[in-house]
Computed example of a mutant assay.
Amino acid sequence: MPLPKITLGAVNIEAADPEALATFWTAVTGSGRESSGGSVYLPPAQPGGLAMFFQPLTGPRPDRQTMHLDLTVPWGERRIEVARLEKLGATTRWHVLDEHPHVQWTTMADPEGNLFCLAEHPPKP
């Protein structure tokens, strides 16, 4: 049986202020942006990159986030990127540095409180 040819088109996020949150994520990803009717689309910044779509919040924000983005940077660059993202308006929530030998990460929140992780994997021997 052939494998399905499914790819991720975009991550969709409801936001209290789609324009402001898209501005933050544009700076994070290096993407361009396309606005229309109160929503903003960020196409992938490079082939195989992450696309994001921001639309107005349609109801109360859930008390608990059940999904988040795991972003990856090259080994040795996580601290530099964490500092850059904090300057853009993200907040650091916690670090996981020695729990798993194959990965270190920092859990952060974007300006509207959506959690995401910034991970780095050590080089394989």
Rank of each mutant, 00 (worst) to 15 (best):
T26I: 07
N114M: 06
R33K: 08
R61Q: 01
R78V: 12
L21R: 14
L97Q: 13
M108H: 03
M1K: 13
D110P: 06
T7E: 14
A10T: 08
Y41G: 00
I80S: 14
L57W: 00
H68D: 04
L88Y: 09
P43G: 07
P101W: 04
T7R: 15
T72N: 15
T7V: 14
G113N: 03
M67I: 15
A16D: 03
S31F: 12
M67R: 12
P122E: 11
T29C: 03
T29V: 09
A20K: 14
E19K: 15
K87V: 10
T106M: 00
G37Y: 06
E81G: 06
E86A: 15
E99V: 15
T92E: 13
R78A: 08
L118H: 02
G76P: 01
N114T: 11
N114F: 12
A22Q: 09
T66G: 10
T58L: 00
V73K: 10
E86V: 15
A51C: 04
I80C: 06
D17V: 08
V103E: 13
T26L: 13
H95Q: 05
A83Q: 12
V40Y: 10
P123C: 01
I13Y: 00
P122I: 13
P101L: 03
P101M: 05
W105H: 13
F54I: 06
H121D: 02
M108T: 05
H95I: 03
L115Q: 08
V11T: 15
H68F: 11
W75V: 12
G76V: 07
I13G: 02
E81P: 09
P125R: 10
L71E: 01
P56G: 01
H100F: 04
P111T: 01
L57A: 02
G38H: 04
G59E: 00
G59F: 00
P60H: 01
I6W: 08
R33E: 11
E112W: 08
A51Q: 02
D63P: 07
V28F: 02
L42E: 06
P18D: 11
I80N: 13
Q104C: 12
E77F: 11
D63Y: 02
P60G: 04
E120T: 05
V11I: 15
A27L: 11
K5P: 04
P44I: 10
R79I: 05
D110T: 09
H100V: 01
E77C: 11
D98C: 06
D70V: 10
P123V: 03
W105V: 13
M108G: 02
K124S: 05
L69S: 06
E112I: 11
A10Y: 13
E81N: 11
T107R: 07
L97I: 11
V73F: 09
R64L: 14
R79E: 15
E86L: 14
P111C: 02
R93P: 00
T72C: 12
A15P: 03
R78T: 09
P2D: 12
N114C: 06
P44D: 07
T106V: 06
G37N: 14
W25Q: 13
F116Q: 10
Y41E: 07
G48Y: 08
H95L: 10
E34C: 04
